Amino acid sequence: MARDIQITFDCADPAALAAFWTEALGYRLQEPPGGFATWEQALEAMGVPPERRNDASAVVDPDGAGPRLFFQRVPEGKQVKNRVHLDLRAAPGLQGEARMAALEAEAERLAGRGAIRLQRHEPSPPLAAGHLIMADPEGNEFCLD
């Protein structure tokens, strides 16, 4: 039986990281519970104190096809390289210089939103098409592929 999955990010600022990934993936913030126009109203009604209202955030694929991303506040910072990471398919069907140009353009767009460029890996046919390694605003590595 296939299962739905959620990808969880431990982070310092769930709202900011959720905002970055909505831009990176074309996702949207998850809607507040029924009966509430905003998350602020829902959290107030639930009795969540103001200092705890950025403890978690979630983003979802507007088409419902991709996994939900959940961001939870943790006290410790990131310390080592991710063992699992996201690959953003930013140049599907492109090869060679056209592919790398598309990846570079996406890297520039995401850098404008707080991402950091880490490495460029050149194409080496037949198996490697070339990719860029990036980090989100909290240092979580991802690839533009």
Rank of each mutant, 00 (worst) to 15 (best):
R113D: 07
L127R: 12
T8S: 11
Q79M: 11
G96L: 13
P49M: 12
L144T: 05
I7F: 11
R73Y: 08
G77E: 15
T8H: 12
A16H: 04
P62H: 09
V48I: 15
L17E: 09
L110A: 04
A129V: 05
A18L: 09
H131C: 09
L118G: 01
T8I: 14
R99E: 15
G139H: 08
T22M: 07
P123G: 03
G130Y: 13
Q119W: 09
S124F: 14
R83F: 08
A90W: 11
T38H: 03
K81G: 14
G64M: 09
F9L: 03
A12S: 14
K81Y: 05
P123H: 05
F36T: 00
R99W: 12
A56P: 00
R73C: 02
A45Y: 05
F71H: 02
E106Q: 15
V60A: 07
L17I: 07
Q30R: 14
E31N: 05
A18R: 10
Q72N: 12
L88R: 03
R3Q: 11
E122R: 10
W39I: 01
G66D: 01
G96Y: 08
D136Q: 05
P137T: 04
T22A: 06
P49I: 13
A91V: 10
E97G: 02
G93V: 13
N140I: 06
A37N: 09
F70A: 07
D61W: 10
M100Y: 08
R68G: 01
A58E: 08
R3C: 00
G26H: 07
A135Y: 01
